[in-house]
Amino acid sequence: MRNRASRTAEQVALFRALETARGRDRVFDDPLAVRFLRGGYRGLARAAHIRVVGRGLEKYIDRRWPGPRPSAVARTRLIDDLVTGALAHGARQVLLLGAGYDSRAYRLPGIERVAVFEADHPATQAVKRRLVRGAVRPERRRHVHYVPVDLLTEDLGAVLLGAGFGALEPTVVVWEGVTNYLTEAAVDGTLRRLASLTATGSRLIFTYVDRRALRGEIPVAESWHRAVRRQGEPWTFGFDPAALPGYLAERDMRLALDLSTRDAADRYLQPLGRAENAASFYRVAEAEIQ
């Protein structure tokens, strides 16, 4: 992952593009997702606007790799709602940490009124910046600040402050699809730094993998892990959901929400009559800075 853009980030963008192509029964609209795709992926996403093609692609993906697509769709909508809620309750800046091909800075209502900082590995971010320049007018991206950083080797706080991040400002942080690729020390250090950088009441929204999946104790997770290993992006870290409240409390955070992507799919997808096989071991948590 050090010298190229993340392959898993592009796959999540594909899942978001396929959901957007659904039209009437989509659970979110991400018009930029297709712009982050290359070659064949982009062709598939464009073809998905033909309903029978789109549904066929979804079925093929879900048979071949059960779980990742609906999990990505459900977590995207859940995190959208959590960020929108934090903005409504006074967040003055947004930090997209390990932003990948996240387009929330351009599509969530009201987000253009606050400063948005996108912090990511330089390789992935370089690709994204080029694509955004070609897809988003300058006046629609003036509130976005790009911050290249490698969480494994650099001081996140120093890099953010150097880019104009407001220390001790009410903030909402999104850390999506990242913790499971880091070391335990990197996750610990990042959480402690975020708690010291942001105001009391700030929100941290993050995803994680149940630690049992890394130990091979959840059979359904094995196909996921094999797939990311083949792409050179193996899972390296997970949390024990039962221990998460205490872990966060030791780092000056209070756990406010912890849902599996299965729970999120039940909330957003089932009412549309879409039986999905999202995963119970992949989870979305929200913590409040104390």
Rank of each mutant, 00 (worst) to 15 (best):
I61M: 02
D62H: 00
D62S: 06
R64M: 12
R64D: 13
G67E: 08
P68H: 01
P68G: 05
S71Q: 10
T76N: 02
T76D: 08
R77Y: 12
L78P: 00
I79W: 01
D80I: 07
D81G: 01
D81N: 12
L82E: 14
G85H: 11
G85F: 09
A91P: 04
A91N: 03
A91T: 10
G100F: 05
G100A: 06
Y101Q: 05
Y101N: 03
D102A: 00
S103F: 04
L108P: 00
P109A: 10
P109N: 10
P109L: 08
G110I: 11
I111D: 07
I111S: 02
E112G: 08
E112L: 03
V114R: 02
V114I: 14
V116K: 05
V116W: 00
F117T: 04
E118V: 05
D120S: 02
A123H: 09
K128G: 07
K128H: 09
R130K: 15
G134Y: 04
G134C: 08
R137Y: 14
R137C: 13
R137L: 15
R140L: 15
R141M: 10
R142Y: 10
H143Y: 13
H145F: 07
H145D: 02
P148K: 01
P148F: 05
V149Y: 03
V149E: 04
V149W: 01
D150A: 01
L151R: 05
L152W: 06
T153V: 12
T153D: 14
E154I: 08
D155V: 06
L156F: 06
V159G: 09
L160M: 04
L161H: 13
L161T: 15
G164W: 10
G166S: 14
L168C: 14
T171C: 04
V172K: 03
V173F: 07
V173K: 00
V174F: 02
V178I: 14
Y181P: 01
Y181A: 08
Y181E: 10
A185I: 13
A185E: 12
G189T: 11
G189S: 11
T190F: 07
L194K: 02
